[in-house]
């Protein structure tokens, strides 16, 4: 579904990502792992179009690397960004409404809203509160619901568990598992490698902007992963 060839991201003279090849097939959950500063977020931002990048990004066989982010969304990509970035001054309902802005199926939007309220019951009570007043975990749930509201076929999750309490992290990963069970294709960026690998089909490990490992997630034993992280 998604195919990336020779992706490179540069900030001035610093190469954040170099010559990365990566692919995600339909129905897969792929984990993108690596230590801090390895280039994971830059990769995600390049896929969605928020940073300029060299190389090729393909969705369903079509080159999308020249498209602005909003048109990539319309091709079926969605991102729950790092740090959540909910619209703090808007209510939960307005956040969701914006995400549904490009959809024409009103009934579908209503059904989806109901579905997300079931998935994240905490949001239901807060529908008309400004999103900025939500807790970190609630904001993360809203960010995921918001990404889903655009009806993606490939969901990009950037650090969904960052800075959250263990109980909330547990819940977030339960939701990711449910989404996968429902057939959603997911590219998951995580610092919490153990959690991510338990769910993932395949994994890529980045180090210093380059690919260090790719293969089935279960083959990535913890000692191997450790050495990749430390830079063995």
């Amino acid at each position: 579904m998604l195919k990336i060839e020779k992706l490179s991201v540069r900030y001035g003279t610093v190469h954040a990502v170099q010559d990365l090849d990566l692919a995600v097939a339909e129905g897969e959950l792929v984990a993108l792992l690596g230590p801090n500063g390895a280039g994971k977020s830059s990769t995600i931002e390049a896929i969605i179009g928020l940073v300029a990048a060299g190389g090729r990004v393909e969705m369903d066989g079509q080159d999308i690397s020249r498209l602005p982010p909003e048109l990539r969304i319309r091709r079926g990509l969605a991102l729950s960004p790092e740090g959540r970035r909910v619209f703090a001054g808007l209510t939960v309902a307005e956040n969701l409404r914006l995400a549904a802005a490009t959809r024409r199926d009103r009934a579908g939007v209503r059904a989806d809203t109901d579905r997300f309220m079931e998935l994240f019951p905490v949001l239901r009570a807060r529908m008309h509160q400004p999103a900025g007043t939500l807790s970190g975990g609630e904001q993360q749930m809203l960010a995921i619901a918001r990404a889903l509201m655009t009806r993606p076929r490939l969901l990009l999750l950037d650090e969904p568990s960052l800075g959250l309490a263990p109980r909330i992290v547990q819940r977030i990963f339960e939701v990711i598992a449910e989404l996968k069970a429902g057939g959603m294709t997911i590219l998951l960026v995580e610092q919490n490698a153990a959690h991510a690998l338990r769910l993932a089909d395949r994994a890529y490990v980045l180090g210093a902007g380059r690919l260090q490992y790719q293969g089935p997630a279960r083959d990535l034993a913890s000692d191997r992963l450790m050495s990749l992280y430390i830079g063995g």
């Binding site: 900030y11 001035g12 003279t13 610093v14 954040a16 500063g37 280039g39 977020s41 830059s42």
Partner: peptide
């Protein structure tokens, strides 16, 4: 001399 380096 490196100018305007940006750490990501």
């Amino acid at each position: 001399t490196a100018q305007g380096e940006r750490e990501k």
